[in-house]
Amino acid sequence: MTNERDREAAARVFLGKTIRLLSGADSQPARRIRLRGQRKPIGRYPSLKAGRGVKWEAIHEQHLMWILEADANVVSYLEQPYTLVIQRPGERDLRYTPDLRCVMWDGTGEVIETKDTPEEFEDPEYARKLEIAEQVFHAEGMVFRRLTAVDDIDVEPRLSNSRLISGHRYTFVRSLDELKLREAIDAAGGTLPYGRAIEVLSATADRWDVLARARLHALIVRRVAAVDLYQRLDADALITEAPRRT
C-alpha cells in the first residue's frame, strides 16, 4: 500500500462500480478529525503503540483504543486509515472511511468499523458501502470487522481490565524488568500467575507492590507479556509471553 497522501492505492471494479482506495501520507490518517467546533464527544488518546495521539470521535472508539493498547495481539493501530471512493457514473461518488486499522502480531491487518448498536448498521446505503468495503479490504489481504459498543466493546471485565492496563502504558520499565519477567514465565512452563509476576518485578517481592503492578501492565502494552483480558484480573490470572512471529 502506498503511503503518499490521497494517492490511489488500488482501483477495482465490483458489480460495475469503480473503487479507489486512498491512504494517508507516512502512516497518517486518510481523513483528519477536527477537535474544535464539534458538538459530539471527541478527543485524542496518547497511544504508546501508535507512537502519537490517536483521535477518536465517539466514546466507544476511545474504549476500543484502551482495548487495542492492552491487547498483546495488536502491534499498532491507526485511526481513519483509508478512504474508499465508490464512483457512480452520473451520480455523486460515495465515500467511506473506516474507524481503525490494526496490525496484528502475525503481520495481518484488520480494518474496523464501529457503532453503538447493531441497528446502526442496518441503513441500506450504509450497509451497501460496508459490503463493498469488505470486498475491497479482503482483496487487499485484510479482515473487515463490524463492532458495536453493546456487543463487542463495552464488555466486562475486558473493558475495565483494558482501561487499567493501558493506563500504565507509559510507566518506566528497564531491560532488566523485561528479562526477569521473561525468565520467570519460561521457568514456570509458559504461564505465570498475575500475583507472582508482580512479585518478580517488585524490589521487595511484594505482590501488592503498586509500582511493580504498573510495570507489569506497561510490559503487557509493550508486548513483552500477555493476559486474557476476558478473565478476572486477580492474583491467579495467567500471564504468558506475548505472541511473536517465528
Rank of each mutant, 00 (worst) to 15 (best):
E119G: 07
K40I: 13
Y77V: 04
Q38F: 08
L21P: 02
E125P: 05
T171Y: 05
R20P: 04
T108I: 05
V74H: 05
A70Y: 08
D123S: 14
G24H: 04
D151A: 11
V227A: 11
R39I: 12
A9H: 07
E8L: 15
L176N: 06
W66T: 09
V150W: 09
Y77K: 04
R88L: 11
I67Q: 12
V173D: 10
R213E: 12
R158A: 13
E110F: 13
S27C: 07
R182H: 03
A127Y: 01
S202L: 10
D228Q: 06
R31Y: 03
V103W: 09
R12Q: 09
T171W: 03
S162D: 06
I165N: 02
H60F: 13
K115W: 14
A242V: 03
D26L: 02
P41I: 01
D234N: 13
A149W: 08
G16V: 07
A72T: 00
A188P: 05
S27T: 14
I42K: 13
I86M: 14
A218W: 02
H60P: 04
N161L: 08
E140P: 09
V221I: 01
A139K: 05
T240A: 10
E113V: 13
R158K: 11
H60S: 11
F144A: 08
R44H: 08
S162Q: 11
R223G: 04
G107Q: 04
T148H: 05
R7D: 00
A237T: 03
V200A: 04
D26S: 05
A9F: 00
D26C: 02
Y194M: 05
V103S: 12
A205C: 02
V173T: 15
L219G: 09
K55T: 14
A72G: 04
R196T: 09
D6T: 03
P29M: 10
P89K: 13
R169W: 12
L181N: 01
R92C: 04
L64C: 03
F144E: 09
A203C: 00
Q135A: 15
L159D: 10
V155E: 04
R39P: 00
D93F: 12
R182N: 01
Q87V: 10
R101I: 02
R101C: 12
I198C: 02
L68Y: 10
K40H: 11
A72W: 06
K129A: 03
E79P: 00
I239W: 12
A197M: 11
L147Q: 07
